[in-house]
Amino acid sequence: MSKPQKLHLSTRLNGEDVEFLCEARQSLLEVLRDELGHTGTKEGCATGDCGACSVILDDRVVCSCLVLAAEVEGREITTVEGLADGDHLHPLQRKFLEHAALQCGVCTPGFLVAARALLDRNPDPTEREVRYHLAGNLCRCTGYDKIIRAVLDAAAEMRST
């Protein structure tokens, strides 16, 4: 059997240039966690249903379990590690804490990243828009209301500053 093809890729991850080696079969999620040590992004279902592995790829939120690492050459990736500015949490992160919008926390990085992608495009979403945009992120603990409130509150704060 032939040796697995090793691909050399260059990409931008949370504003920094990174290079890595991967196999064609590896998902972006696997490489982020296991090769690049960015374990903030979580694996939930691995079939694109739960959104726990959400990352922003060139301004669009995607499930990193359904992206091959081989596809990201020259592209820009933002993970939950890229949200805070040093020690200063992103407003979404602060509001999630204030509203207790998390319990076990496995879904939280995906919600934060997906919410950030929404607010980048639409700084003043309605509750309905937030709910639809986050329909691909599943949370089995909170019942969603606190998450929706946290996102709306963060959006309001970001608009006023």
Binding site: R60, V61, C63, A135, G136
Partner: peptide, 9 residues
């Protein structure tokens, strides 16, 4: 079709 994440792909 699917979620925001899926529609983006």
């Amino acid at each position: 079709i699917g979620s925001t994440q899926i529609q983006n792909r």
